[in-house]
């Protein structure tokens, strides 16, 4: 059975997938990239957690300089962006391409808000004299959030590809739209972990 045929069977419009044929969302290559990125970040997270526990007094003192509210707002923004791009995929599947484009733009807006808030938070920390080299916790803080922000920036290009694909009937490829969404969801779940480790863990 071809991929297109499987898609048509498995993506019954608006249904929750009862009696459907399993199908990998998007291109398999993107899932390999997600796996590599996840393993890379997971290794950073484990090293951070080990260092945190080994130097807990110094880490906790440095961590008290973070504003938890920034972490919460940024998490809610990225969750909203992820929900919106998932809706875009669903609308595209159902042939509602203008609705899908609107949802991708909402995702872009959420991403830009996240970017602005993160840069503002960094500027506040730098204003307080907390730099990359100030202590081990802030080295991890700038490294993890910086690496993540780099992925957000790449995400804007990926979202641009989704809008480009959706905007013309000659180009529309459900598989590419799903591939773009998969990348953006990875950006979301990586942040969810960063939020827990940097802002919540004690």
């Amino acid at each position: 059975m071809t991929k297109a045929a499987r898609d048509s069977l498995s993506r019954a419009p608006g249904k929750a997938g009862v009696g459907t044929v399993p199908s990998t969302p998007g291109q398999p290559d993107m899932w390999i990239l997600v796996l590599i990125e996840a393993l890379t970040f997971f290794s950073y997270f484990v090293v951070y957690t080990y260092s945190y526990k080994a130097n807990s007094v110094a880490f906790l003192e440095a961590q008290s300089h973070l504003n938890l509210l920034f972490g919460v707002i940024n998490t809610l923004i990225l969750l909203t962006s992820s929900w919106s791009i998932a809706l875009a995929v669903e609308k595209s599947r159902n042939g509602n391409f203008s609705g899908a484009i609107a949802n991708v733009w909402l995702t872009v807006g959420c991403g830009l808000t996240f970017l602005a808030l993160k840069l503002y938070e960094w500027s506040l920390k730098i204003g307080e004299g907390l730099y990359f080299s100030s202590n081990e916790f802030f080295s991890f803080y700038y490294f993890l959030t910086g690496m993540h922000l780099l992925h957000v920036l790449v995400g804007f290009i990926v979202l641009g590809v989704a809008i480009y694909q959706l905007s013309s009937p000659r180009r529309r490829s459900q598989e590419i739209v799903e591939t773009c969404a998969t990348y953006w969801h990875m950006v979301d779940f990586l942040w969810v972990i960063i939020f827990a480790l940097l802002y919540i863990m004690r």
Partner: peptide, 26 residues
């Protein structure tokens, strides 16, 4: 924090990334 994160990542994978409709190996 770790438990809540595990739940959140799984929901993102299953629902938003549509892994629940993916082949068993994924």
């Amino acid at each position: 924090a770790i438990a809540i994160t595990a739940v959140k990542v799984r929901v993102i994978l299953r629902e938003f990334m549509d892994v629940r409709h993916a082949p068993a190996r994924l």
